[in-house]
Design a protein around this nucleic acid. Sequence first.
DNA 1: AATCGATGTGAGTCCGGTCTCAATCGTAGG
DNA 2: CCTACGATTGAGACCGGACTCACATCGATT
Lengths: 376, 376
Amino acid sequence: MSSDGARRRDVTVADVAKAAQVSKAQAARALGNYGAVSDDVRERVLAAAEELEYRPNELARSMNTGKSHTIGVVVGDIENPHFGLATRGITDTAKKSGFNVILINTDENTAAEVDAVRVLLDKRVDGLIVAPASSVETQHLRRVHESGRPLVLLDRSADGLGLETVAVDMATISYESTRYLLDAGHRRIAFISTLRTDVEYSEGTRLDSSQISDRLEGMRRAFSDARCEFPGDLVRLNAGDAGSIRNLTREVLLGADPATAVVASDGLIALSVVEAIQEMGLRIPDDVSFLMYDDFAWTRLTTPPLTVVAQPVYDMGAAAASALIRQIEGRPPLAPAPEFHATLVRRGSVGALPGSEPPHSASSSLSPSFRTSAVP
Amino acid sequence: MSSDGARRRDVTVADVAKAAQVSKAQAARALGNYGAVSDDVRERVLAAAEELEYRPNELARSMNTGKSHTIGVVVGDIENPHFGLATRGITDTAKKSGFNVILINTDENTAAEVDAVRVLLDKRVDGLIVAPASSVETQHLRRVHESGRPLVLLDRSADGLGLETVAVDMATISYESTRYLLDAGHRRIAFISTLRTDVEYSEGTRLDSSQISDRLEGMRRAFSDARCEFPGDLVRLNAGDAGSIRNLTREVLLGADPATAVVASDGLIALSVVEAIQEMGLRIPDDVSFLMYDDFAWTRLTTPPLTVVAQPVYDMGAAAASALIRQIEGRPPLAPAPEFHATLVRRGSVGALPGSEPPHSASSSLSPSFRTSAVP
DNA sequence: AATCGATGTGAGTCCGGTCTCAATCGTAGG
DNA sequence: CCTACGATTGAGACCGGACTCACATCGATT
């Protein structure tokens, strides 16, 4: 019932103590629910706190407990639904354990990531979840780890450092989906990714991103197993804004030996690729087959619905958060580390090689062959 | 070059001071770049700081400056691309001014929102951006405002409190788009929203959300201007998960006097509605017309591409952030408050009333009539 | 009745910075 | 040569809680 309008200074334990006629120490004990406090004192303090609308200053509390109950999350771009969903998994899990989340975007820029990590460390977050822009430039992550601050990686790994990482086995799913395309008769398969890199892609290039490396390796292995030549010339990295993706799409589809199938590395790219294909007047899957990573709801609404690699993104975010919290609370990591598997969701955007009937697919009918392909 | 591996306690100014052989005060001055410090001392301190890898504790700093350089963002659901995009606008703007963002989801639950606000206040954020779940239950927001803490609302307003709010004029755009549907001959227009409410919708009901209220009011006005009866029976609130949205869609499309057009209140709903329509074997726009709020890239990929109400979501997020930062820094709000307008993007999902040719559209051809409809 | 352990309680320190204040140093003006 | 004013510098208070420690208090034990 105390209505004193706008007040400037916050109410502190000292104020409450004075109002309750007890020492600051006793008030703190009653409010913080620790130590020994008589019922009488507790009641008076609580009443005074209520009356004054006392609220503890978490900053001060953090100062001498050393715990901020805050975790830092560093992702490429929260606007990307992939990260939106992962973040949701993280925040939901964090909230359950009483943690808050500070979010920073890096736009997949390592410098921004280094900065983000430093800022979060300065703010004394209890731990970090990072989707590293690079799997190679990881000194800043190593430093975090060595300083003993809990850290969990998401989506991509970092070479060498023994960091807990939550990611799917990209090489395997990439192998499987490439195999699927191969079975449909495709040999000229393009791969388009936003990964920024200076080097031109070719066999053996160690790419900056474990995720993309693994995918390419999976593709390569599938081609090799099928005794086909891997079309390295159709790998397009450094895809940027919508316009550049359109151009890349045109390139791979209009060249001398054009792609008959296109794989989009994420949902954002997929959007522009499909649009470009439609603009070119090509039909999916009759003229060109299409496959993308991440299964968003809208992929079921296109005509035809799109064939995708579905990743348990929300669950991975949630798992990253609980792993981090385990670290923070000093508990050992989950006994058998949870594994996450991507699955190929076959819908309508992948068809048989246009122009000719499936060439030498006599050896095996399409989907059974795929279904039984056990990969180690 | 100091490589002492894992260290426990952080390096403090005191440590740096000792290493540089100066007083704590001088070290602090040199590091904090304030007060008078001789070149000699500054150099020694900076060198020592470098050597020891000193990093200031922002918590401690915040404690006595009273500024945490952190803002709290409270949204319904970061997984919803609408908020993803708005959040991106917020974080980008915040970063430019040196602010970080703590993100909390409420799932449009007021209790969770009250809690979120309290937590953020306890953490002493410098200001808050809230997309309020309810425009009616706003005591917690009033309290924040009265306590003098900067606060900006996003998307929805709060009755009565004179809070700075960044939102589009929903009534107007709703009027316009309803007019568009009416011009196409539709009279039975369904509206589906996730808004949770206990009351059954009917004329005059004051809904919990200003946003939805305004949209319905715009629709109502358009119907009234067109001398048609507003189909209140086709307003469906409380849409929840995908399943329930499917059911609601079926209801309005299968009743005795079914809807000929459906308006989806946001992108998530739209997904399920379109899916339900496809499942029912109905074609858009031949059998049923469709219009949705928010213009996501995927809406161009469906067949036909979807007609949408586009909102400048990113810009609104950015504007909310700069408005908040102005408040925090004690600067006056932008002279003419920036206004944001939604626009109707006519693509292919709205067609003429099925079965009959446009009935009495003789009065005006479709789009000119719409284009010139100036609404106050 | 003297002693012991389990509470209760208040004074005061600490966390890691910022900032005030008084003391010191240097030297330019008189 | 002496004084005064600005530049430097160090000691210590302070932000708002958490927590240590010494000092009661009090019923229970022997």
